[in-house]
Design a protein around this nucleic acid. Structure first.
Length: 479
RNA sequence: GGCGGGUUGGCGGAGAGGUUACGCAGCGGAUUGCAAAUCCGUGUAGACCGGUUCGAUUCCGGUACCCGCCUCCA
């Protein structure tokens, strides 16, 4: 069996991956807070850990991997949006509007991540479905002296856990020195963090021993991981920005609540994404969602490919140039594997992926397979990366055109062939270029036989396409 | 201020203590009415300084620059 090696943030070393139970390899990844569309930065961990999920399934068998990714559906931004809608006159109670908002955001998330070729995790728990477990865990922490209730809040006593800061490499004293936050007066220690907090009338809340309130963010993941994967499991993943404080707090809570478990054995963190060299932010104006890109006509597979071009532990930059390069490569490969029956994934691809998810290295092997003409292995290897699959079929094809437009294209292609036969290069080229603008390439195979190919050279949007079809019709009228 | 990551050829981007990464672009050629597509060939590197070594882009130390986290943004 292939040995997977992973860089464990806990030890800062690349280690052989040894599962607790090869029959059931268990992984938890922090999912989104469902208050709005996922942006491109959200997509990176999704694709990275989808890649790991696929590799684990390949090595241990499809039925032997449990992948949990949560939805955080308790959040101030969700409440704010629901409240805004209510004030704008939307019908229903605030709770119903909150539910509506999370439902719609989860549906968007699924649609967008499906478009990137990410497999759905085995379980996608919602925080609101595990409130009872969070309360129970919080009660346990109070009972064991690791937490305390004050003024409707429950706080975790950071000083009660000696290994606090180990994952992120910080000491509690350093953290206090650098703290820039105002400290709530009821905290015993500035570093203590919230396990439970009170809810006001218009906020969602659940009854608890400490009054009506809602859970803190960190306890959500601890409770759900424990409930669904057990006190000890194999892998915990997430973005590097979550390493502190979120993951640090998760470890502290879980270790104290379940002293016999050891929580996650391997911690994996993906580096952050940038856009054209800058951090993506609304103020810089370089902020966009996955849906924005899809709407621009960039196939989800292209986005996936770009995300896989860079190793997950390196910062990566999204640029239009990269997207164009990825698109070109995928178009070439797709043409090459059309109608080919996939064979086996190349061992070098598996070796690269097993070496701490070296997706860039795996892609290099894909290039070599394409160059050497091994289409069946290219197809199978690409499938392992979640590429060149039938599911990722959001590429333009002739089916995207209506019956009339297809007929129009056919007539123009015939006209092009005729002009060529007459050696009327000017008129032939005019038609050829107009068709090309629509992603349709006419090629001369022999003097008598010509063929039409549908491609997407510029990743044109639907609106643009309409305009170009109209231009074609005008061109035909001129013939 | 504290902690962490990065710096490879025009661009993207890996591995490896000594042998061609790979891709894109470029250049030359084949093909073509011209292009496109395709095919063949090809140049260009390792931020800086020092150390270890027969030999370092690869290991160690330092410097510079960039980035992230420390604020419930993945």
């Amino acid at each position: 069996m292939v040995t997977i090696r992973l860089t464990n943030s806990k030890t800062r070393k690349k280690e052989d991956f040894v599962p607790i139970d090869p029959e059931n390899v268990r992984m938890y990844v922090c999912g989104p807070t469902v208050y709005d569309r996922a942006h491109l930065g959200n997509a990176r961990p999704v694709v990275v850990f989808d890649m790991l999920f696929r590799l684990l399934r390949h090595v241990y068998g499809e039925g032997h991997v449990t992948y949990v990714r949560n939805f955080t559906d308790v959040d101030d931004k969700i409440n704010a949006e629901a409240l805004r809608r209510q004030k704008a006159g939307a019908p229903g109670t605030l709770e119903e509007l909150i539910h509506e908002r999370t439902e719609e955001t989860i549906a968007w998330y699924h649609a967008d991540m499906d478009a990137l070729g990410a497999l759905r995790p085995t379980v996608e728990p919602r925080a609101t479905e595990f409130i009872a477990q969070m309360i129970a865990m919080t009660e346990g922490l109070i009972a064991s002296g690791h937490a305390y209730a004050v003024e409707g809040h429950v706080l975790f006593r950071v000083r009660s856990y000696k290994d606090y800061g180990k994952l992120s490499g910080r000491s509690v004293d350093d953290m206090i020195a650098g703290a820039r936050v105002e400290v709530a007066p009821f905290k015993e220690d500035p570093m203590d963090f919230v396990l439970w907090k009170p809810s006001s009338g218009e906020e969602p809340g659940w009854d608890s021993p400490w009054g009506r309130g809602r859970p803190g963010w960190h306890i959500e993941c601890s409770a759900m991981a424990q409930e669904l994967l057990g006190e000890s499991f194999d892998i915990h993943g997430g973005g590097l920005d979550l390493q502190f404080p979120h993951h640090e707090n998760e470890i502290a809570q879980s270790a104290c609540a379940h002293p016999h478990g050891d929580f996650a054995h391997y911690w994996l963190h993906n580096e952050m994404l940038q856009v054209e060299g800058k951090k993506m932010s609304k103020s810089l104006g370089n902020f966009f969602t996955v849906r924005d890109l899809l709407d621009q006509g960039i196939p989800g597979e292209v986005i996936r490919f770009v995300l896989l071009m860079t190793h997950y532990r390196s910062p990566m930059d999204w640029t239009a140039e990269k997207a164009a390069e990825a698109q070109k490569t995928l178009m070439k490969w797709r043409k090459f594997v059309t109608g080919v029956k996939p064979s086996e994934a190349d061992h070098r691809v598996i070796a690269a992926l097993s070496d701490d998810l070296n997706t860039a290295g795996a892609i290099a092997v894909l290039h070599e397979l394409a160059k050497s003409g091994d289409a069946p292995s290219l197809a199978a290897s690409a499938h392992l990366l979640g590429l060149l699959t039938n599911k990722l079929g959001d590429w333009p094809t002739q089916d995207d055109f209506s019956e009339e437009v297809r007929a129009l294209i056919k007539r123009l292609a015939q006209a092009w062939a005729n002009y060529r036969d007459q050696k009327d290069w000017q008129r032939a080229d005019q038609i050829r270029d107009a068709l090309l603008g629509l992603g349709v390439r006419v090629t001369q195979k022999t003097a008598q036989h010509w063929e039409v190919r549908y491609e997407n050279p510029d990743m044109i949007s639907l609106a643009e396409r309409e305009e170009r079809v109209a231009a074609l019709a005008r061109l035909e009228a001129l013939q």
